[in-house]
Simulated assay, not measured.
Amino acid sequence: MTAIETSLDATRLMDSGHRFDGGRRWQASLELGFVSRDGITRMARARHQGPLRVQRPFYPEGRGAEGRPGPCHVYLLHPPGGLVSGDALTISARVEAGAHALLTTPAANKLYRADSHGVAWQQATRLEVADGGALEWLPQETIAFDGSRGEQATTIELAGSANCLGWEVLALGRPASELPYVSGRIDQRFRLTRDGKPLWLERQPLDPDHPRFVGRWGQGRASVQATLWAVGLPDEREAVEALRERLPASTRWAVTVRHGVLLLRYLGGERNEAWALCEAAWRVLRPRLLGLAAHTPRIWLT
């Protein structure tokens, strides 16, 4: 083999992710688009690269009381089941006017321990909803293993009267296996805008060595956290009161409204409790926001 051939082979390895520094990348992306045709939401675009897929669209809700077709349910599939050092996942979805999509996942996402070089993973989610569209973003929980290092960024762009309801549930470590999250770092970013105007901007570093992680003014050593948002509620105050009345009373969660964004937060130590809280809140908020009773995606029951 000549020196040139050896150099070319090395370049191919570098390009494919077989390297051991911060430049290593195994990329995967998924781009979805939803439109309304004849009053029915259709998945008009599904472009992927790497191990990200979707199952066929489902319409389990049929037609509502007013004869309107139900939303399009789509399950996002990531066959590896988690992120390792060097992974770079990008998910984008756009819902056009008159369309209504519900996106979820078949299982928990796992963030594995970084390799010996400390190479981070990346995950970026971009959700766009046009004027008159509606999107529900309801992924199952994420579990971060001890030593995981990476960046999560969620961007939500709404236009006009667009509605959006979603959540993120994150469990740090595996306490049941006596493997708590005691090392690593996860940087979370949220950005939500309407017509280009920022409504909710947040950055949260999750680092066990940072005072915020242990301080009662911050994480307070909690191993599970969840954030639920709802944008477009016609009566935000009534929705908050309904949540306070119907959800189990606890000091581990609170709800507020800022700039038209209802935010419900959970901070505790039980992954199942956080999930149950978000699902119960969804059942309260969905009829108020979207005029539809909650319909459990069947993938959650398998």
Rank of each mutant, 00 (worst) to 15 (best):
S92G: 11
A88K: 11
H117D: 04
G50L: 06
F58D: 00
S148I: 05
E136Q: 15
G62A: 02
V119R: 13
E128P: 06
Y59S: 00
P69Q: 03
L76K: 10
Q27E: 06
D38Y: 07
R63K: 06
P69Y: 07
G33R: 01
H78L: 03
L135E: 01
D87N: 13
H100F: 08
P80L: 08
E96M: 08
C72R: 11
V129A: 03
P79A: 05
E136D: 13
V119Y: 02
G70K: 08
A130R: 10
R42M: 09
P80A: 10
S116F: 03
Q123G: 13
A65P: 00
A93N: 08
V35R: 12
G50Y: 00
A97Y: 01
L135K: 03
P106Y: 03
G39Y: 10
D131M: 02
L127G: 14
A108K: 11
P51E: 04
A93Q: 06
T105K: 06
S92N: 00
A107Q: 11
N109G: 14
V95K: 09
G132H: 10
E128L: 09
A144Y: 08
A28P: 07
R53L: 14
T104M: 15
E66R: 14
V54Q: 07
C72D: 01
H78A: 01
L76P: 07
A101M: 10
A114C: 00
Y112P: 09
H117I: 00
E66I: 01
C72M: 07
S148Q: 07
R149L: 13
R37T: 12
T125R: 14
Q122C: 00
A134L: 15
G132E: 04
G147C: 06
L138S: 12
F145D: 12
W121H: 13
T142S: 15
A144T: 09
Y59F: 14
P139W: 14
L77S: 00
P80N: 09
Q123W: 09
G39E: 05
A107V: 03
Q49Y: 11
D87C: 08
Q27A: 13
R94Q: 09
L127Q: 13
V84A: 15
D115H: 02
S36M: 02
Q123P: 04
R47E: 05
L89S: 06
A28I: 11
D38K: 15
V129M: 08
P80W: 02
A46T: 05
F58E: 01
V54T: 15
T125V: 15
L103H: 13
A114G: 03
G86Y: 11
K110F: 00
W137N: 12
I91T: 08
D38R: 15
A93R: 08
G67R: 06
A97H: 07
R37A: 04
H100D: 00
R63H: 04
G118A: 01
Y59T: 00
A44C: 09
L52T: 02
